[in-house]
Design a protein around this nucleic acid. Structure first.
Ligand SMILES: [Mn+2]
Ligand SMILES: [Mn+2]
Ligand SMILES: [Zn+2]
Ligand SMILES: [Zn+2]
Lengths: 147, 147
DNA sequence: CCCCCAACTGAAACTGATTTTCAGTTATCA
DNA sequence: TGATAACTGAAAATCAGTTTCAGTTGGGGG
């Protein structure tokens, strides 16, 4: 079950001048192994299995670090708070999140560019950015539901 | 400046079995008169001008009430927290929010339906809902910026 | 190999937004 | 004009996240 840290995470972190401490390694390991997006509390819970002294503050700090290095995505959750999941090799885009298990797939925002142009024409606004998030059920949770 | 309460607000509230109290009237009046989306704190500040004893808790409660009756939209703000603005006659849809003054225009999500179908095919997810929010500058704030 | 010290840590206190609790007030209707 | 269920504000609680600070430690230099 102990999947390797994604290629280059350790290198990325040290090259950026950060130290590779035990608390960080615990958080890194948890993020590296999860295929679904995790809440901060869940990251804390899991990482404590690897390093029991780990404080919640350090989880927040390490998640911020990983996000700033582009290794992890931060997604606003429907219910408030944030979810975290490794970016891995997928291009940054938008997310489709399973409401049950928090599995995440990235989706392109095909068509939004033209939509944006149209909206600028009609409204006179200068559109500077957008938020797009889709919610639903992943294939697995969908099956589960049908039983 | 004292614009009338939008057609039917009072009726809607009483028909739904709610009482029309002074604190509620203060909050209602503020929402009714604002053309831009307001934070809870701002609603509180303005409503106190009409009814100084008004507590913040009642602002929250009244906003929840108005949202549940469909009279007011609750929009997640980029910076955390929520913004509130009357739904008025516009159809429920998505929002384009001015980053400076919080003016809001509603936008249709043209093209998202087909996009959704495509995504369901590719990912196997059942898409149940989405969040789309655009951010930018309204014509006025845009001009202001240019000076 | 070990030492040094800036980077890093956890505890605790803090913040800002929102919710819960509860004892007192009030809008409405018989 | 009551009676009373709905409603209220104050205060305390909760929840996510941040700040502070005194103590700890990874890892490059000697
Ligand atoms: Mn996009
Ligand atoms: Mn839509
Ligand atoms: Zn799922
Ligand atoms: Zn504006």
């Amino acid at each position: 079950m102990a999947k390797r840290l994604p290629e280059g995470w350790l290198r990325r972190i040290q090259l950026a001048g950060y130290r590779l401490t035990r608390p960080r390694q615990a958080v890194l390991g948890v993020l590296a192994e999860s295929e679904v997006a995790l809440t901060v509390a869940e990251v804390h819970r899991r990482a404590r299995a690897r390093y029991p002294r780990l404080g919640l503050v350090t989880v927040y700090r390490t998640l911020d670090l990983l996000v700033s290095l582009g290794l992890v995505h931060r997604l606003p959750a429907e219910t408030g708070g944030q979810l975290y999941i490794r970016t891995d090799l997928q291009p940054p885009s938008h997310h489709l999140i399973c409401r049950v298990c928090h599995r995440v797939v990235e989706i392109p925002c095909t068509g939004l560019e033209e939509m944006t142009h149209e909206i600028e024409q009609v409204t006179g606004f200068a559109v500077q950015g957008h938020w797009l998030e889709l919610f639903g059920l992943c294939p697995t949770c969908r099956e589960e539901r049908e039983k």
